[in-house]
């Protein structure tokens, strides 16, 4: 038996928004420790890794490990039926071929349930090596979304260069070129608005704008985003999900031909 209750169903809505443009379907792996998802986009350029810890749920029970293959468009339809303030419960029997979503209004005067068929998906898990990254940049997530949106007007690629002084995002194309530099913030009263850089070695890498823009769909989940980079390895873009977990995106770099 699997049962997970979340008072804020809006968190789950936001998680779905953050993955549904990159992935058509995905397997939600449920275990005693929580719900995990790992999936690559169809072109195998990026990977989504979601972790929702069981202790972050208001109630959580998972007697046997359960892999739920889910069509994300179907799940989006169901999550649209939940009010932002609704309490959500996901429920499935062991070896079930369906999952039930139950939504309760805060005053408990409206209760609804939606049953969704599960899919059999080929499970393909990748081993992600532990990496000490040369640069770890934390910045406001809305700022990062703005930068990705603005630079994608100039070209298909963004160069992210990080030094001790700051981080520079650059793009170039037919209409010209663009550079956005962010310096590390000196004194900030509000942690959410800070730009911080931990640098061992300077790094400059090129990434496809299109994917960065997909990742920024996670912006509503967290006021800050963390970018981790090392030479010639995939970029990690991480958004914390409150007290419950995180979503990480990995993106393979573009290299000189």
């Amino acid at each position: 038996m699997f049962e997970a209750r979340l008072v804020q169903s809006s968190i789950f809505k936001k998680v779905l928004e953050a993955i549904k443009e990159l992935l058509n379907e995905a397997t939600f792996d449920c275990s005693d420790s929580g719900i995990q998802l790992q999936a690559m986009d169809s072109s195998h350029v990026s990977l989504v890794s979601l972790n929702l810890r069981s202790d972050g749920f208001d109630q959580y029970r998972c007697d046997r490990n359960l892999s739920m293959g889910i069509n994300l468009a179907s799940m989006t339809k169901i999550m649209k039926c939940a009010g932002n303030d609704d309490i959500m419960t996901m429920k499935a029997q062991d070896n079930a071929d369906s999952v039930t979503f139950m939504f309760e209004s805060p005053n408990q005067e409206k209760m609804s349930d939606y049953e969704m068929k599960l899919m059999n998906l080929d499970q393909e898990h990748l081993g992600i090596p532990e990496t000490d990254y040369s640069c770890v940049i934390k910045l406001p997530s809305a700022e990062f979304a703005r930068i990705c949106r603005d630079l994608s007007q100039f070209g298909e690629s963004v160069v992210i260069s990080c030094t001790k002084e700051g981080v520079k995002f650059s793009a170039a194309g037919d209409i010209g070129s663009a550079n956005i530099k962010l310096a590390q913030t000196a004194n900030v009263d509000k942690e959410d608005e800070a730009v911080s850089i931990e640098m061992q070695e300077k790094v400059s890498l090129t990434f496809a704008c299109r994917y960065l823009n997909y990742f920024t769909k996670a912006t509503p989940l967290s006021p800050q985003v963390c970018l981790s980079m090392s030479a010639e390895v995939p970029l990690v873009v991480e958004y914390k999900i409150g007290e419950i977990g995180h979503i990480r995106y990995y993106l393979a770099p573009k290299i000189e031909e």
């Binding site: 081993g127 393979a252 573009k254 000189e256």
Partner: peptide, 14 residues
């Protein structure tokens, strides 16, 4: 000109 690398060249199947 740059070329997109596949993620599978960094992360191996488990």
């Amino acid at each position: 000109p740059t070329k997109q690398v596949s993620l599978t060249s960094f992360f191996k199947k488990k």
